[in-house]
Amino acid sequence: MKLTFLGTSAGKPTTERNVSALGLEFEQDNKWYLFDCGEATQHQIMRSSLRVGRLDTIFITHLHGDHYYGLLGLLSSKKLDKAFNPLTIYGPKGIKKFIGCAFADISFEHLGYHLKIIEYEVGETFVFDRFTLKVLPLVHSVESVAFYIKENDTSNKLNEEKLRAEGLEPSPLYGELKRGRSIVFHGKKLKSKAFMLEPVLGRSLIIAGDNSQPAVLGNYLNDLDLLVHECTYTQEVYDHLPEKVLHTTAKDLGEAAEEKHVKNLIATHINPRYSKNSKLGVEVVYDEIREYYKGRLFIANDFDVYALGKDRVVRKG
């Protein structure tokens, strides 16, 4: 499972970071999924290894411009790139109206490809070929959600080494065993259950939109393999803001992830004040999370690529 960060800034782009967008790919798959689509995401895609022609689905966490203003340009460029494969967008109520204002007729004839728009409800679950996705509520100034993604379990793997020990090489008989049927080979009955490996549980991750209370994710954080969550401020900076905003602090994020034993944490949506040219570098965000969280921790930068392995360990590519 591979994650490519296309934008990691909070609110506005900077010379170091663009606004929110994240690509997700699964092993041995010919498509990918985009989570949020801030302004200029199409430019970021062109600078990455991702290709618009393989983009299958877009998920929008909420209707703040830094999370969805890049949609219109991306949808238009897709046609110009002759990427005519169908595309589905999942977004909150209002996303259809927004796109409809730009495209008078949302149709295959207008865009050159089939565009499907689904306005989700909090609590809904959607089933895809490699995973299920559940929409979870967050706490923000507008309705904002997190997407809980659970990869399908693998339960039909044969113990090929054991079958070869019986003299049975790969053949259509393997398919019969996978379907739970017994077979007869060289006069011996081979029962399916005797040659099946233990199921491999699918990986789990949450990709969250803007949220002031990480703990609101509750039991979905329990032993989660990976949490991708905003971390807009350090606690001291937040405490001194003249006007409070509904965003997460590094302290709150670290405490929530540690309490629920989250295995890997990637912080994103970094406030522009934390930069290379500022008195406050991004390391202060890392250090504050680390004070409370003992798991594997990363602060995402634009174009960072991370892999969540089958061993549940995140590694930076």
Rank of each mutant, 00 (worst) to 15 (best):
M1N: 03
M1Y: 05
T4H: 08
L6W: 06
G11T: 05
K12T: 15
S20R: 12
A21Y: 00
F26R: 04
F26A: 08
Q28Y: 14
Q28H: 14
D29P: 07
N30H: 14
Y33K: 06
G38H: 01
E39L: 13
Q44N: 14
R47L: 15
S48H: 04
L50C: 08
V52I: 15
I60E: 00
T61W: 01
T61V: 07
H62R: 03
G65R: 11
Y69C: 00
L72I: 00
S77K: 12
K79G: 07
D81S: 14
N85M: 06
N85R: 11
N85D: 08
L87R: 06
T88F: 07
G91F: 04
G91R: 02
K93C: 03
K93M: 10
I106Q: 06
E109W: 14
L111I: 00
G112C: 04
L115W: 03
K116C: 05
I118W: 09
Y120W: 07
E121N: 13
T125R: 13
T125Y: 07
L133D: 07
L138K: 11
H140G: 00
H140E: 03
S141E: 13
A146F: 03
Y148W: 11
T154Q: 14
L158W: 08
N159T: 02
R164I: 14
A165Q: 15
A165E: 15
L173V: 02
L173Q: 05
G175Y: 15
G175L: 15
R179S: 14
R179H: 12
G180S: 09
R181A: 11
S182E: 15
S182H: 10
I183T: 01
L190K: 02
M196H: 07
L201P: 04
R203T: 09
I207S: 01
A208G: 11
S212R: 08
S212G: 12
Q213H: 08
P214R: 06
A215E: 13
A215K: 13
G218L: 02
N219L: 10
Y220V: 02
L224E: 09
L224H: 07
D225E: 04
L227C: 08
L227S: 11
E230T: 09
E236L: 09
Y238L: 05
D239V: 10
H240D: 07
P242N: 04
L246Q: 03
L253F: 01
G254W: 04
E259Q: 15
H261R: 13
I266G: 02
T268Q: 06
H269E: 09
H269T: 06
N271H: 15
S275K: 08
S275F: 01
K279C: 10
L280R: 12
G281N: 06
I289K: 01
R290H: 13
E291D: 03
G295Q: 05
L297D: 03
V305T: 00
K310L: 11
D311L: 05
R312I: 14
V313C: 12
V314E: 01
K316M: 05
